[in-house]
Amino acid sequence: MRSRVWGGTAAVVLAGLLAAGCGGGEKKTADESAGKAVSGDFPLTVTDCAGVRTTLSTAPRKIVTSNASSLELLLRLGAGDKVIGTGFPPGKGTLPGTLDAKAQKVKVLGRSVIPKEKLLGSGADLYIDTFASMGSMGGGGMGDAPTAEEFKAAGIDHIYLKSTACAAQSKSPVTDLSAVEADITSLGAVTGTSAKAGQLVAAMKEKTDAVQKAVGGTAESSRPTYFFFDYDAGTKQPTVVCNRQVANAVITLAGARNAFADCDGDYKQVGWEDVIAKNPDWIQLGVRNRGSRAANQKAFDEAERWLRSNAATKGLKAVEAGHFLRIGSERTTIAGVENADTVETIAKNLYPGKVG
C-alpha cells in the first residue's frame, strides 16, 4: 500500500477492530470491544488485518510511530509525551494549533521509512504502524521492515492503524468513518486516554450525523460526481482515490459520488482520458500542506491553473463551471479527526443552504 505521508482478561478489547477496519466480523463483537476498551485494563489483545493477535501486557511508555498520521492522533489524545520517535515526520506548520509545536519536538528516526536497525534499537516498547499489514504481519509492506521475531526480541509490541493499513484489503467499499473512529478508540485504550478518545469520536459523529441529516437522503442519481485531483502525485498520469480509501468515505458522507468509486483498492493510476470520460461535476484541488497559508494558496493556484490550461482538462464540466474545492490532501486521504471536518466542508459547498 502507498502511504499518504505527512496506519487472558481483556483479550477481545480491540479484536473487533478487524471488523471496523477490514470489513469482516460482526458488529456486536466490535461494540463489545469498544465498551471494554474504555477501561484500559491490561493485558490488552489487538489484532492485525488477518486477525493475528498481539497482546500488550502493560501500558506502553515509549512509543514510536511510523509516520505523521499516527503521531497526530496520539497528540490529539494527549499521549504525545509517550512518543519517543517517528518516521515520515510532519513538516513544520502542517499540524493545527499547538499540535505543531509538540510534533516538532518528537525525535525523527527517519525522514521516510524508519531504518530497521534504528527502529529495533530505539528503546520503544510499542510501534504503531500505518503501513500495509501483509502476509505474516511481521513487516508492514514498507522497506526492510523487522519481522515479528525481531520485534519480539527487541521487546517491541507491533500494532497497526488499521483504517489505513488494512484499507486496500477491505472486502467492501469504505463509505463511513467507523474504521477511523475505531482506531481512535483503540489508541485511547492502549494509551490510557479513552475519555479523550470518546470526546474526539463524539465530535466527529456530531458533524457527520448533521451532514447526513441534511443531505443523506439525496438520491444517488442526484448526487454530484466528485474527482479528487492529487496534484502532488504528478500530472502526467493522475493518481485517483478508489473505493477502499478513506477519501471515498469522506466524499460519500458529504453527499457526493466519488468519480472513481468503481475502482477496487485504495489508489490507482489512470489516464486523463479516464478522467475525461467521468467528466466530474466538482474537483477537489488536493495539495499537501506546505506549512503556511500563503504557500498553500500558491499550491492551490498552481493546481487550478494547470487544470484550466491543460488541453485534456480545460473542457471538463467542473473546470468550465469553476467548481473547485481547495481542501488539503491530508485531511481527506489520511485517516484522522479532520476527516469529519472535510465531510462538512464538502457538503457546505455542494449543498449551499442545506448544511449549516
Rank of each mutant, 00 (worst) to 15 (best):
C166I: 11
M137N: 13
A254S: 15
V38T: 12
A214W: 06
S133I: 04
K28H: 11
A259I: 01
G85H: 03
I276P: 00
G356D: 11
R2K: 14
T342H: 02
G121W: 03
L109M: 10
K116F: 04
A249M: 09
A195E: 15
W6V: 09
H323N: 11
P224Q: 04
D183G: 07
G25Q: 04
D176C: 08
A59D: 03
K62L: 12
G139N: 12
G7W: 02
A197R: 01
D266N: 14
Q269W: 10
E117W: 04
D232R: 02
V337A: 07
S178V: 15
K171G: 14
P60E: 02
K36H: 07
G24Y: 08
E220Y: 10
S3P: 10
I128M: 07
K152A: 11
T47A: 09
L316R: 01
D176S: 15
C263G: 04
G271I: 00
T98D: 14
K236L: 06
S292I: 08
S133M: 06
A145F: 03
L253H: 03
Q245W: 07
K268D: 06
P173N: 11
F151P: 00
A168Y: 04
D262P: 07
P115L: 05
A214Y: 05
V64F: 02
G91L: 05
D264G: 13
R76S: 13
A219E: 11
N289P: 02
A335W: 00
S178Q: 15
D41Y: 14
T58Q: 13
I283F: 05
V113Y: 06
M137R: 14
P173R: 05
P43W: 05
V241A: 11
E302W: 05
P43G: 12
C22R: 09
Y127C: 02
G138V: 08
K236A: 10
K162M: 09
C242G: 01
L307F: 03
S329H: 13
S57I: 13
S178W: 08
G198I: 14
R53G: 09
A10R: 10
K213P: 09
Q199E: 08
S33N: 13
T225S: 15
Y231M: 03
Y267T: 11
L119H: 03
A261K: 14
A124G: 03
